[in-house]
Write a protein that binds this DNA or RNA. Sequence first.
DNA 1: GCCAACGTTGGC
DNA 2: GCCAACGTTGGC
Length: 137
Amino acid sequence: MRYWIVKSEPGEYSWDDLVKEKVCPWVGIRNYQARNFLSEMKKGDKAFFYHSGAEKAIVGISEVVKTAYADATATESGTWLCVDLKALTKSPNSVSLAVLKSKPLFNNLLLIRNSRISVSPVAENEAAEILRMGGWN
DNA sequence: GCCAACGTTGGC
DNA sequence: GCCAACGTTGGC
């Protein structure tokens, strides 16, 4: 089981929206690197939910409930992928980007190295620390 | 509002 | 195939 971070502008689609819908096709990824990560996701993988923009924090955790399939919102069929995400729990304490940046452990986190990537992997030890700081333990 | 980083496009 | 120009994203 792997961990990921998915990013969304809360004005576009927020954690609360995912909670409301329970399960959501994570569509609209139009970046090849991100698409490759989508294709690597397995059922049961966990995805931290990050709000970009004003908040800049991890606000919840979701689970991959369906592996990558064709993104129906793409105009060119078959080119882009999406997965289905299910809301699990809101983070008891949101984990801000500033805090992540302040810890050397996260120096290699793709979210930090490339702030524009909308889907990115998280290493085991990084995930453990995020879970701890988020108050999930 | 600005700008850095990145991706894409198009001329050559 | 290279690279300049441009557009977009997202942090500050």
